[in-house]
């Protein structure tokens, strides 16, 4: 009995330590966003009065943080909308219209998940460079389209939607077909409304990975005037004398959308992550 009690105290002790380690960097980030660089170096653990000043520095620096918020939002929203539409159509197609040939194609598409991005970034960079040189300036390097395009259809999302489609009641398909609905109407008017929670979960993961993406925007957007939020933060962090008050304020802003999604939609958030494994 006594042994059990000491074990449970140990458990709580362990969990409290782990939780503290998990939360502390957030506290440090929020507190530091209200302090100036000197106070941060002096390890001030209380809220300061420099939040407004940090924000002003952030938005008035020549790195143009305000514009980057716009770029990042545009890229993340457009990527999410297109990726959900294209991948759910594909996932639906592979599951509802099953055939041996399409199953084989699906397995080939899945192989693309194993391809590391570092092997793709060079040819993609040259591809967009070549397209830009042909005069189609709207889709070459340094355009928002070049950041969006490689992510509008991923094998991961197709797989995710195919797995989720398995729970879609298939007998209503027959009824709809007998009623004379064509296949696109069935998809838009019956499938999409029923699968709302799958779309929500898919939207969260896609938005988040797009909002946080670093390597491809870093390669595709070489023009310093066109940078997404992670690129700006990274540039600020790698300067010789980083102003951490300003950087932390920037990180707080960069974390707000994903934090908001997490606290508002915890269930779909988790479903989006594990939904494809089950």
């Amino acid at each position: 009995m006594k042994k059990k009690k000491s074990l449970s105290i140990l458990k709580y002790f362990f969990m409290i330590i782990v939780s503290f380690i998990s939360i502390f960097p957030f506290l440090w980030m929020i507190i530091s966003a209200t302090n100036d660089a000197r106070e941060i170096t002096a390890v001030k653990l209380t809220f300061g009065t420099h939040l407004v000043e940090n924000l002003r520095n952030l938005f008035h620096s020549d790195l143009n943080f305000g514009a980057s918020l716009g770029y990042s939002t545009f890229i993340a929203v457009i990527t999410t909308v297109l990726a959900l539409l294209i991948s759910s159509v594909a996932g639906y197609g592979f599951e509802i219209f099953r055939s041996k040939a399409r199953d084989r194609v699906f397995n080939i598409l899945l192989l693309s998940m194993m391809v590391p991005f570092c092997a793709l970034m060079i040819p993609l960079y040259r591809m967009f460079g070549a397209v830009g040189k042909t005069g189609l300036t709207g889709i070459g390097l340094n355009t928002l389209i070049s950041v969006i395009a490689p992510y509008v259809c991923t094998a991961f999302l197709i797989f995710f939607f195919r797995q989720n489609t398995k729970s879609f009641p298939k007998d209503i398909l027959e009824a709809a077909r007998i009623d004379g609905l064509n296949e696109t109407r069935i998809f838009f008017h019956m499938y999409m409304p029923v699968m709302k929670s799958s779309y929500a979960a898919g939207a969260i993961i896609t938005f988040m990975s797009s909002w946080n993406n670093y390597l491809w925007p870093l390669v595709a957007l070489q023009d310093p005037q066109k940078r997404t939020v992670p690129l700006i933060l990274s540039a600020m962090g790698s300067s010789y004398t980083p102003d951490y008050g300003m950087i932390m304020a920037g990180i707080v802003i960069a974390t707000l959308p994903t934090g908001f999604l997490f606290f508002m939609m915890q269930k779909q958030f988790v479903a989006g992550m594990i939904g494809s494994v089950k």
Binding site: I23, N212, S234, I251, T255, T258, G259
Partner: peptide, 19 residues
Amino acid sequence: AIFLPCITSLVSYSLIMKN
């Protein structure tokens, strides 16, 4: 609490750790 680090972007948390 333990899941919370997952909401940060890789760049953001790297800079926090660096600091």
